[in-house]
Every structure is written in structure tokens, then in C-alpha cells.
């Protein structure tokens, strides 16, 4: 069983990375939300697996929270927003999807390139794990910068956060993993459930931040 721990953790990390990468290619919000949900579920599995491997109760807790909030509550909320605002059509991207996918590959390359020279003697988390989570973080950021739609930016941000949690649960013995992931979730919940979307709804007809951009055009 022991020799399975790391390969399986890697496998889960790899699945998360693929989800994050697939997010880049999606034009429709509904598909993005589904992908995100799947990513969160995989993360839950990874957290449980690490909790099992490290015999750490906090990691189970983290996994539980992830499951409840990220894999269930947030996607439900997001779907409701999509439905209410009727933005099921494809969202506009700031750059061609193909180009953003090439960039995504490049980012994974950068992540690997940066992590490779680091030496991690006494650490059980290997370079690959770090490279995977760094890639997920960077890909999430890329989603945020290539989508004009606020909701897809939020999804990108959530994916970034998944990368962070993936890194956190892989850190052996790291204290406060549960607390930090809760704190992060507060931020995310604030982002999604919070008043923003409704306020933006009040002032802009859709969630496209182009409306906001037009305000910014006025000089000050």
C-alpha cells in the first residue's frame, strides 16, 4: 500500500491539472462550472488520500470542507447565477482559445522549469507535485486574464485556489492547512455568494466586465 501513496497522489494531482487545463479551452459557462466541480471533487479525493497517507485528521477535515463547499455549494450557486442572468451562451474571450492553450502549455513549461532546479532532499513532496500545483495556479490566473466575463474570472480564481489547496495538502506536517483553506474559502465564498454579483447585476445588465471597463475609460 505504501508504495502506492505517491503514485496515486500524483495521479490525482495530474487529474486536477488536466481539469485546470480543460477550463482554458471552454467557452461555455456551464461546462466550466462542471469542470470546476470535477476538479473540486478530485481535490477532495486528494485531500482524503493525503490525510490517509499522513495520518492527519486536519486533512480529512479539509477534504470534507472542500467537498461540501467547493464541490457542491459553489457550483450550485454558480449555476443559479448563470440561470438567473441567462448567460448560457458562449462567453467572449480576450484571446483566441487556441492561443491561450498554447500559452497554458508554456506556463506548465515555466512551472516545471522553475521547480526543477530546486532541491528537495528531506521533503517527501516531490518536485512533480509542486510543479503540478504551480501549474494549476498559473493556469487559473491565465483563465482570469483571458476571459472577459466576470463569472468565468471567478471560476478561474477558484481553480487557482484549488491549486493552492493541492499544494497545501501535499506539504507534510504543515500546520493550519485546514484553517488556511477555510480562510481561502471565506474569500472565495465572499467572491461568489457575496454581494458583488448582485450589485454588478444592479448596475450592469450582464456579468461582462466590459461595462466596468467603459467607466474606466473616463479620465480622472
Amino acid at each position: 500500500m505504501n508504495n502506492l501513496i505517491y503514485p496515486f497522489a500524483h495521479l490525482l494531482g495530474g487529474v486536477i491539472l488536466i481539469c485546470a487545463f480543460a477550463l482554458l479551452s471552454q467557452r461555455r459557462l456551464a461546462a466550466m462550472i462542471t469542470l470546476y466541480q470535477f476538479e473540486a471533487m478530485t481535490l477532495t479525493a486528494a485531500a482524503f488520500w493525503q490525510g490517509y497517507a499522513q495520518h492527519e485528521l486536519a486533512l480529512y477535515l479539509t477534504g470534507g470542507i472542500t467537498l461540501i463547499i467547493k464541490a457542491i455549494a459553489l457550483p450550485v450557486g454558480l449555476r443559479r447565477i448563470v440561470k438567473n442572468f441567462n448567460i448560457t451562451r458562449a462567453v467572449e474571450t480576450a484571446m483566441p482559445v487556441g492561443l491561450s492553450m498554447i500559452l497554458g502549455v508554456g506556463l506548465i513549461g515555466v512551472a516545471v522549469w522553475v521547480v526543477l532546479p530546486t532541491t528537495m532532499n528531506a521533503v517527501t513532496l516531490t518536485r512533480e507535485d509542486l510543479a503540478i500545483s504551480l501549474s494549476v495556479v498559473l493556469l487559473g490566473l491565465l483563465v482570469m486574464t483571458t476571459r472577459r466575463n466576470a463569472l468565468s474570472q471567478v471560476i478561474g480564481f477558484l481553480s487557482t485556489e484549488n491549486g493552492l489547496v493541492l499544494a497545501a495538502i501535499g506539504m507534510p506536517g504543515m500546520p493550519f492547512v485546514a484553517e488556511l483553506s477555510v480562510a481561502l474559502l471565506v474569500l472565495m465564498a465572499f467572491l461568489v455568494v457575496g454581494v458583488f454579483l448582485f450589485r454588478i447585476r444592479e448596475h450592469f445588465d450582464n456579468l461582462d466586465i466590459a461595462g466596468i471597463e467603459s467607466i474606466e475609460k473616463q479620465g480622472r
Partner: peptide
């Protein structure tokens, strides 16, 4: 938020470096 996320990643790496 993005800043906070990046900071957290940095903090985890610091922990990893110090461990």
C-alpha cells in the same frame, strides 16, 4: 485576491524550504 493567493503559495513554499 490574486495577491493573497500568490502570497499563500509563497508561504507554503517558505514552509517547505524551512521544514
Amino acid at each position: 485576491g490574486v495577491g493573497i493567493a500568490l502570497a499563500l503559495f509563497g508561504i507554503m513554499l517558505t514552509y517547505l524550504a524551512a521544514q
